[in-house]
Each structure stands twice: as structure tokens, then as C-alpha cells.
Design a binder for these strands. Sequence first.
RNA 1: GCGGGCGUGAUGGAAUGGUAGACAUACGGGACUUAAAAUCCCGGGGCUGUAAGCCGUGUGGGUUCAAGUCCCACCGCCCGCACCA
Length: 874
Amino acid sequence: MTKTIERYNPRVEEPRWQKAWDDNESFVASDKDDGRDTYYMLEMFPYPSGRIHMGHVRNYSMGDVLARYKRARGFNVLHPMGWDAFGLPAENAAKQTGSHPKTWTYANIAAMRAQLKSMGLSYDWTREFATCDPEYYHRQQELFLDFLAAGLVTRKSAKVNWDPVDETVLANEQVIDGRGWRSGAVVEQRELTQWFFRISDFSEELLAALDTLDGWPEKVRTMQRNWIGKSEGLRLLFELMPSNETGRTSVEVFTTRPDTIFGASFIALSPDHPLAEEIGRRDPAVQGFIDAFHRQGTATETLEKAEKEGVFTGLMVRHPTRPSETLPVYVANFVLMDYGTGAIFGCPAHDQRDLDFARKYGLRVIPVVLPPDTDPADFTVGADAYVGPGTIYHSEFLDGLTIEAAKREIARYFGARQVDGAVQGTVETNYRLRDWGISRQRYWGCPIPVIHCPTHGVVPVPKADLPVRLPDDVTFDKPGNPLDRHPTWKHVPCPICGEPSRRETDTMDTFVDSSWYFARYTSPHASEPTIPAIANTWLPVDHYIGGVEHAILHLLYSRFFTRAMHRTGHLGMDEPFKGMFTQGMVVHETYRDTAGDWVLPADIVLEGMGEARHATLASTGAPIEIGAIEKMSKSKRNVVDPDEIVRTYGADCARWFMLSDSPPERDVQWTEAGIEGASRFQQRVWRLLHDTLELGPGSEDASSATAEIESIRKLAHRTVQGVADSIEGLRFNSAVAQIYELTNGLSRFAAALEATPDAFGTAVLRDGVERLLQLIAPMMPHLAETCWQLLGKSGMVADAGWPSVDTALLVDDTVVMAVQVNGKRRGEMTVPKGAPVPEVEKQALSLEAVARMLDGAPPRKIIIVPDRIVNVVV
RNA sequence: GCGGGCGUGAUGGAAUGGUAGACAUACGGGACUUAAAAUCCCGGGGCUGUAAGCCGUGUGGGUUCAAGUCCCACCGCCCGCACCA
């Protein structure tokens, strides 16, 4: 076709349709039961850092495809968006630029909202909120009080990382080589009284329910399983020999290998163990060891590589199964205080750490597990501990038992004995999962709604007095918590007695905010946290999409919160997310100039290919070194600004490219060629539409139908089916490929009709294009709307539903069967579908290639998979 | 160390145990054009001049009429957790 048409202009069309959807309230979810099934589509809400990045574009494009698709399939879809708006960056900005965290945050939200709107995402914006809205944190405070009343919250003393310069608690991630990440001060371990959510009460439940979450990636479930870290073992008392000055008579250890008790050769305490601290006070050598341990502190790097070291305490314990023997008690650097009891018994022969320790301090190594089919005389433990299966030996009454049987036997044995008037051994399940400490000494977070009264202790703020609002008049010029040094805010009367009291000045961890926002979306403006009747119709979220970096904490906290809200009557289910998906990152090449500084992709020019590929700085022509492909990050400057892409190519192209190139769980590399390809496709659809319009409406009279016309009809119907299957399976790249095939087919067909007009063919083309637009609509919604309108369809494609599929067109009456000889393809043949086996066999044997391979001999065997393949075995 | 995942053309990737390389990108050739862009058509895993054929999904074995796909062993890469007793 030689006529020229104007190019499709996304800059004009996209804002037009965004306004139309808005005016039409196309994506406002209905809380009324209108007979449609509900579908809750959610993407992880962003932190309002100021700009959206390509990772957001990818995440939200995927979510939008599903939301629009499900809506087309007749679901009542809830697809909300909001802002995870509390957090430290706002306070840092306040310190650096003097702008108030609130001003900074809301300005960022406004900017990012405009960016998201320019992408044409099908959000129900009427449900938008920010977690820093008093309306939101009011309800969060209500939840806190309900949790408190239900015994789900506790206040206890805990060791925390304390930055003495900034006067704040630091998360483990913020301590680098034992120093505060911002102040550089040596971090102290401080014992502080903190608020905790009792998530560890739910350890078993949270673990067990993972098995029911079959809509989650196995990887995420595994990560959560490991994080919860269940292990079953024995809590065991060792009797301290009387000659000690501590006044204690026993030491308690936890072990998962009680079957190796006869191999025990020492006891080791954590440096943080109360008994170790007690001995340290009298014994300078022990205290020196503990101090040295603390100086190494939290730097994970050094912890990993640290040699097993310890110091003898002078104490001895009685061997629990060999009463005439004693074992030395050490303080050792590899024993953790916050797991088990903070003390272990060492069995060097069957634990590598214990073995390393024993070799260093000359302790006994007594093998008690004999590997299968091994002669006891041949078995020795050298540099490697034996941790495999085997038979117990050197163990008196356990001899000959398997490990599992020995565990049961020894548990029974210790269960019947006493030390200190207590049962010596108790079967116990231990979890790594610790309670969730939520106290933060920060301003920009949700205030914890309690008051400390000298008489009544901790008093909850009465619900009528909520919300406890953050004061606006705060300063950030000094270190520490602005709430704490505010002149008046914390001075309040006790709600019970009216005496002068102190308001809690800690705020909640921002993970609390994101642990229930998905529930709040169901009634975002209700005067209670949720309206259970409504929340229960929407939840659990049908599909949740976000980054794998939240696979543990955010998802685990949300699962806990859902259970806690269930117990306190705010929700009617235990699991928040039925389907869950973690998308891959957006990566890009990195570029550096001759000085080694990172350079933005937008500032360079790329030329050549392969070996000859090189880059220069656009402004000066200076050479640029092309570096590794890495996750887009500000620090490496390998970022592409979504705004720039939307301005240049339009939102549809950005969305299309993000969906088309890689499977969604894998990383996708942003390339100029890729976005160009999307843009080319967009114009191709546009031209196809105009070619179709040019040909006119055609005729429904099928009497002139040809095989070619039929094959186009089939292609269209099959693609509808295939794209639906692909979208349901989140194989967006595969859906895109099928749409390409349909577009190619229709374009060629349009060209053929131009050359040889055919009225029925024209009608089939038009029908195919109509279907194509509906398939494209979830991905390139603006383009689809414009074309839909030009095609003369009434209403919007967003409301048009999903195209029907004539299942009769999905099956062929003939099939092409591959013919193999000895499993190698030698030819193919066309047979009627469902052709009888003898027919197929005869035809296959008559193929020239087959006859040649047979060379006159009869085939040994012929395998026929009907309508699929023939394999002749010679 | 433990756990999870991945390895397919020049590149991203496709393939319910049944024709490996769909689709796209890059590239080469052609058409159109004064020319370029855009667009359209053709080509393409390797070896062999062509054809027939042989080889080919990280490596080596195995199961099967048939293996990218299942099993075993190994190599490499990525991610997560990590002194959890």
C-alpha cells in the first residue's frame, strides 16, 4: 500500500484516553455484589522517593495487564495504588535541605502520581492513600491497641544497635564494620525497652501454612521456611560441679543431636550468656575475651571468617551419661545467645564447628556414629566431622541404634531424670524467628499510642483520643528523636489519673505500615481499620506482584498481621495473598568516562556492533568505556528515566517492551533497540488498522470463503485462546509473541486483499483486527482505544470484554505429522485429523525418505502417536 | 556450607517426553527512493561447493521407539540464607 498515513501520535492520544477513563470512572471498583466474581490485583506500593523508575514501570505494567485482562473476563476488579510514605529518607532530606518531611513526602507523591497517571494504569484512584495520612495511621494506632489488648504486643528489654552520635537505634543493615552507617560512630550494644509484636507465637502456624500457599513461588516459600527456622531437639540440663563461686548448680543447653551425647567433650557458652558475664566479672581473662568479641561486633564479614575461639571458665560439669566424668565449660565466639539457650554441648566428632574448636584447644574427639558398612576399627575422624547417617556406637545403652532411634531413646532417658529438681531433658522445638521489634527513635513514623504514667505504668491512649498526631513543629538540627526533644508534645496527663505523664516518643517501624495496607484499600476511608464484611469479599489478594527483596520481611509481617487482624475481628482470613509473584529486575549496561566516572545512558552515543561496538560522550565525543550489565541504580547512573521514555515513545511502548522481552521472573535488559521495536510494532498496528479501514466493511456472506480466509479466521481465534492462556500463566512475553504472529498474518492478508479484493475476506480481516485490538488492550491500552474508536466500535475497548472463541476453529481437519526413522525426523505428511492408524502407517512407509532408510527391509516397529508423530524403528 | 534457580543461534528468548531455535532484536541481500529515513520482500545453528548426509540445547553417562525436557555424576553462573548447635 503506497498511500501515506499520519503516524500514530501517543503524545496526543494517551492523555486523551487517560482523561476518558477517569471521566468514565472505568476502573472504580464496586463494593456492591453485582453478580460478578471479585478479583483483587495488587502491586507493591512504592516509597515516594520522588521519581518512578523502570522497575516500577515493569511491576505495574504486569499488574495492569492482569487487572485489565481480568476485568475484560468479567471480574469485578479491585486494583488500587497508594504510598508507603513514612521512613527515614524524608528525615534525611529534612536534615540536608531543611524541608519538612511532610512537605517533601507529599510533593514527591504528587510528582509520582502524575508519572503513574501518564502510564495509563487502570487504578482505582478513589482508594489512594499514603501511610503518613493521619486518617491511615489513626487506624493503625487502633490496630495497635487492639493487638495490645489481645496480648499480641509486648514490651520487653532487648539488645539493640545504638549509635551514640545520632542517638538512635540502628537496624543491623545500617551497621557497617561495627560503625553507624551515617555517623561513623562505633555502635554500642544497648539494652533498651522496646515494643514487640509477638510474631514468634505464630512461628508454627506461619510455617505450616506455607504448604497451603501453592500460588506462591517455591523460592519465596523456601526463604520463609528458612527464616522461621524450625528445629526439633532436646533442652538438656548439665549439672555444674560444686567447686564454683557462681552459686549456680546447672547449665542448660539446646541440641538437635542428643544421640551424640556420649561423644560430648565440652560445654560452650555464648559470650552474651548471663553465666559468662558473671564469670567475666571475676575472671579478667574471660572478661577480656568477651570484650574482644564485642569489639568485633556485628560486622558480618568478620563473623563469617572468624576462627573458632574460646576461653576456659574454670568450671566443670558432670557428664550426664557418664557420671564419673566431667567436661570443661568454655565461653566460645561461635555460640549465639539468641538461639536455643545460648549454650551448647560440643561433640567434635560429629559437628564441624565443635571439631575445629576441639582441635584448637586439645579436647577429646570421640566418634559415636559409625557410617554404614564401616568397620569400627577403620573409622577415624580427621579434619572433617562426620555428619552423615549411621549406627550409634561407643555409647553404652544406645549402641546399635540408628540416629533417629537413639534420639528417641535418649529423650526418654533424660525425661526420666532430674537435675536441680527439674526434669533433665525436655523435647523442645526451637525457631529462629524472633519477635518483631517495632520501636524506632524517629520522627517520621506512626506514633505508638501509649502513655507512661508514674503510677499506672503503660497506659493505652483511649481510642477516643486517637489519632496521636505527629507535631509539625519539629527540628532536625540536633541528633536524636525530634519527638523526644519537642518542648510540649510528650507531656500529657495520664488518661487514668490525670497526673503528669510521658507520651511514648518512639514511632513504629515502617514495615508495620505496609503490613495491612492491602486490607485498608478495601475500605480506605472507613472510620475503623476495615469493614470486615467488605474486606472479606475482596481478600485475600488474588495476585500480588513485587520485588523479591520483600520475599521475607514484608510478606512475613503481612501474614502475621492478617492473622492478628483475624483474631481481633478486623479480617476473616489468615493469609493475605493467595497468588504471589516476584518479578525480575530491570538491568542496563554501565558506562564510564576516562576519569572512571559513571555516565548516564542518555548522555552517550553508541556505534558499531560486536567487537567494534563502542561508545562516545554525546557532548564532546570523548571515549566511553562500556561496562557490565547491572541492575539500574542511581549510583552507577545506568538509569533510564521513564518520563523521558513516555515523552519520546509513549506509555504504551514502555509497557509493551517491559512485557515483551523476557519472562517476567527473569531480569530484563533495557535497550534502545527494544523500545524502538515496541514503537515499530505500534505503528505497524496503526497501519494495519488504516489498511483495514481502507478496504471497507466487506460482506458477511461466506459463500466465497477460501482456504486462506479460513486460515486467517483460525489464526485469530487461536491467538485469542493462546494469549488468554499465556496471560493467565503470566507468560507475557509469550502472549506478545502470539500477538506479533497475528499481526503479521493480518498485515499480509490485508496486502493480499488490496491486490485481490474479496468482500468476505475483508469482513474476516476486520473481525481479526477487532480481536487483535482487544488482545492488545491490556498491554497497549491507549493505542487499542484509538483504533477501536476509528474502527467505529461503540464504547471503549476497556469495556468491551474479552473476544469470544469459536472452539470449532481451534481444531484442524487435517494435521501435519512428523515422520521419524529411529527417532530422527525424515519427513512430514499431511493426514486427515484422526486418520486411522493403518492409513497413517501406510502413508508414512510410502514416504521416499522412509523407504530409502528402510532399504527394502520391513520395519521392526512403528510407533504412532495419533495426529502428532510417526516413528519407524528399523 | 545449606537452600533455590539457571545454562538453547550473534542477542533476548520459544518449545504438555513427540518436527529444537516460535516471536523479537541485530545482521546480510533485494525492492521502493535522486538519496536517506520509514516501509515491504527474501535469507539465516554448524560442517560438507550443491544435494543426500552428519553434528548440534554446559560436560559425561543412563532410561525411552523418541530427551532441551526425566534419572545419575560433574562443570559453570546467578540469587537467598548462613557459626541456628
